[in-house]
């Protein structure tokens, strides 16, 4: 029975779990590479309570001062023969001196090489961030750079286009909503980010074949992620 948990663990290797890709847009014409690790927290019997080691590799480009486009690939999903890709843009629609807000519309595409099943899930994320630390630092080479710390809160929505699930059952959850909080350390070219996502806190996590860890008890799950961004 224990091994069944590993099966479902892998569901989230492929699943919706990924952190916010960009909360703040990049500078105009700036390029960035991103990588993330993490996923839903599960109790794996006989092992521990662990976040699923989902991975993403991504690229972003600052089209305008307030608009960044991005795309991400999912290497762990690929190991299981599933091509998973997401793409979208982050638009900062409001900011003042120390804070700002952005929305990130996008989509997720999955395709498996076994039965050639393809699926598309639109996504809409929104985040509010606030800088609380800004200081000019210097590198070993003596060049100046900005060190910034900020936290953010927001939410992620996946939209299910199909109205039915397996066995012809009605899809009851056309909108999959998960709020998140995160913190980013900007250090020169590098960003280090930690994010916690509260996965579908309104849905029961009972009587399914996995044990989610959730701050809401019998509802939802908890995702934990670490990501790094290198801004060129």
């Amino acid at each position: 029975m224990k091994q069944l948990f590993y099966l479902i663990t892998s569901i989230f290797v492929l699943g919706a779990c990924a952190p916010s890709h960009f909360v703040k847009p990049l500078e105009h014409k700036q390029h960035a590479l991103t990588a993330s690790l993490g996923g839903a927290m599960l109790k794996v019997p006989g092992v521990a309570t662990i976040p699923i080691p989902n991975t993403t590799l991504g690229y972003g480009y600052g089209v305008k001062q307030d608009l960044t486009i991005y795309g991400n690939l999912y290497p762990t999903a690929a190991v299981f023969g599933v091509f998973q890709f997401d793409a979208g843009c982050t638009w900062r629609f409001w900011q003042n001196e120390n804070m700002g807000a952005s929305v990130s519309p996008g989509f997720n595409f999955l395709f498996d090489r076994f039965e050639k099943n393809a699926g598309l899930w639109p996504q809409l994320d929104a985040n509010f961030y606030m800088n609380y630390f800004e200081r000019t630092g210097s590198t070993k080479k003596g060049t100046d750079h900005q060190n910034v710390n900020y936290f953010y809160v927001g939410f992620s929505n996946w939209f299910q286009l199909k109205s039915t699930m397996t066995l012809g059952l009605k899809q009851e959850n056309r909108l999959v909503f998960s709020p998140q909080v995160g913190h980013t350390f900007e250090r020169g070219h590098w960003n280090y980010n930690l994010e916690v996502k509260f996965l579908t806190p309104y849905l029961s996590n009972q009587n399914i074949i996995i044990d989610y860890v959730s701050p809401f008890g019998k509802r939802g799950g908890l995702g934990a992620f670490f990501s790094v961004t290198y801004r060129l």
Binding site: L7, I8, S10, I11, F12, L14, G15, A16, F80, V82, L110, D112, F114, E115, N117, G119, W121, W158, Q160, K162, M165, T166, L167, Q171, N173, V176, T200, L203, I208, I209, I210
Partner: peptide
């Protein structure tokens, strides 16, 4: 059914 119940999203079983 087992997979879709656990993942919420309507993934085809062939993804796994």
């Amino acid at each position: 059914k087992m997979i879709q119940d656990a993942s919420v999203l309507g993934f085809p079983a062939s993804y796994f």
